[in-house]
Nucleic acid binder design. Structure first.
Lengths: 343, 343
DNA sequence: TGTCTTTGTGCTAACGTTAGCATTGCTGAA
DNA sequence: TTCAGCAATGCTAACGTTAGCACAAAGACA
């Protein structure tokens, strides 16, 4: 690997001169600068950031710690972050936890050892104490989920309101046996969405047993498939179903298609997120659209500002993005007809 | 930030002792090792990889350079790579080029400055000369697309065969006006897929003008949408359509759904890739399934071996994964009835 | 002519870690 | 007693870059 020293020796100048020439130091004559740049280019010199970091410069890498990049929710975020950060000269590091706190810890240790400039994390349900300590030691922000013991900036969607809206839509159509399929309560998002579901039932004046909640791993397509199968074959089959995660929605849609369940005649469905395919599924899926891009851009901007300006964060403590209900054909009054829409 | 020196001072030993204790050097007494580890843990010491790299150690970061992580094709690859590499203690860096060679170059410069251990790249159509030079200077492999001037290891799918199969399926059903919608010929994958399309027509004994190729940006959903709209409203409307990229397929499916085109009665469609949603689209999409996981795992393993063992690569120069046609309901003889399958 | 400033460059130390080569104190053999 | 041999640890240099200070040459001014 070519170093400033190699260039210096070739030109018969000192390493300082080379370094300064490359940094465009005004004290160096234009002629020397030109010769240095020329040589650097010819020799294929590429500065060593590790060495620069040793001199106190900070890394230009920001890490994104998420459960699973295959989830299009997260890949959208990754893309948006990457795009915004590249403009500022930052690179993106990707760490997948698979919702496993030990994997999360392993990654945070690595990121810490690599001295990444910042971390954007979707925390697992209950991070290890060491994870919390590591995070506290670096600029970071939480995405979607918020872990209380990290008192840091948080960007999320209004989960409570999203599920309240989704459920209220079904209640308004007269459903009285509504099932909710979502993530576990130990996840902050899971708890909020469940609360939103319950709120809507309550506001609609429905009895407690009108709603039925099935909680489980939120990022498992298979779990969605299995649960909806169980729901439909068991007793007391609901007339409507609200979903509380994208992956669960994907599983449910697949299973319903496969079983040939008539939607919305036999079952009304409200999905979560708005993925490609949701619009062409059956009669079109009514779903809660999420402002993923806006949220990701917000994150990126906040992090960039945080990393550029030394002083403590002056931004708002949290940033809540609202979801919005996209009404398509998968919801109708219980036992109602299919909507007049070509399939 | 805590350094070995801080620990050394606190324990009244030398930095060497601390360093060796942490590296589990057999020359250090068990008691000292214990005290050092204890102190390190208490003080929250995290080794500085930048410093280690200066001493000749290599980075533990492998970069993935792709057009767009939102393309589920690439997010699957990223996931698979990440999973396989984490087991070996490597981290994944993500660089998106958006198929822009200048962005590609910017990223490669950064990766080079960061001294990443290796690069896995889906090259743009015509990388800059400097990009090629930079890549040559680091362990790397090409994914999907192969740029000739990099004589490096390549992992790809058998694009020619994939499109040959897809098209042959339509030819066998008697179609004689088949359109192909794919990426530009300047992309190696684009050229191969187009060649596969033409091969199938030729083998089927069809005249040259039976096939019609519409080439354009392969990762643009919108382009898929627009082109299919144009195809259907123009004169000489084809009876069958073969797609040559996932994103184009997504666009086409959306447009066909929206326009209410009857598939396969009015138009037979063969997609590319097998995304969630393809199975429940209309009558079920006949498509070319790609062995993404296997390919990604192959990449990861090759790269890991390459990075662990110093000597030159002894693996095969290329690794071709076959696609496989998944036949569902979106294809039928021209003017034929819908298949007997519940929608 | 002597001193002061300016311009351009060199020297050196420092960042945190590691590896080679001392150094110390001890045990056991000659 | 003397010294080899060993265990445990210390000292120092080096990795590539940068910043502070020093320094030489040349022009400016009295």
């Amino acid at each position: 690997m070519i170093t400033t020293r190699d260039i210096a020796e070739r030109l018969g100048v000192s390493v300082s001169t080379v370094g300064r020439a490359l940094a465009d130091d005004p004290r160096i004559s234009e002629e020397t600068k030109f010769r240095v740049r020329q040589a650097a280019s010819e020799m294929g010199y590429v500065g060593n950031r590790a060495a620069r970091m040793m001199r106190g410069a900070s890394s230009n890498v920001v890490a994104l710690v998420i459960p699973d990049i295959r989830n299009s929710f997260y890949s959208t975020i990754a893309h948006e972050l990457s795009k915004n950060m590249e403009a500022e000269g930052f690179q993106l590091m990707l760490s997948e936890t698979d919702d496993d706190r030990t994997a999360e810890l392993r990654h945070l240790r690595e990121l810490s050892a690599n001295r990444v400039a910042g971390v954007i994390i979707v925390p697992t349900a209950r991070p290890h104490t060491e994870s919390v300590r590591l995070l506290r030691a670096m600029p970071h922000l939480q995405l979607l989920r918020r872990h209380p013991s990290l008192g840091s900036q948080w960007f999320g969607v209004d989960d409570h309101e999203a599920l309240r809206q989704a459920t209220a839509h079904l209640v308004a159509q007269g459903h009285t046996r509504i099932a909710y399929l979502g993530g576990p309560e130990e996840l902050p998002t899971g708890a909020e969405r469940l609360r939103g579901f319950r709120s809507a039932l309550h506001e609609g004046g429905l009895p407690d047993d009108a709603g039925r909640a099935e909680l489980g791993p939120p990022s498992s397509v298979d779990h969605g498939r299995d649960t909806v199968r169980r729901l439909l074959t068991g007793r007391d089959v609901p007339t409507a179903l609200v979903l509380g995660s994208i992956q669960l929605t994907l599983g449910v849609l697949e299973e319903l298609s496969q079983q040939g369940v008539k939607v919305p005649q036999e079952l009304s469905v409200v999905g979560f997120g708005d993925e490609p395919g949701f619009s062409w599924w059956g009669p079109g899926l009514t779903t809660v659209g999420l402002p993923i891009q806006e949220m990701a851009t917000g994150c990126a901007l906040w992090m960039m500002r945080r990393l550029k300006t030394k002083p403590s964060n002056d931004g708002p403590y949290t940033s809540l993005s609202p979801g919005s209900l996209v009404v398509r054909g998968s919801t109708a009054p219980p036992g109602g007809k299919a909507p007049s829409r070509p399939v």
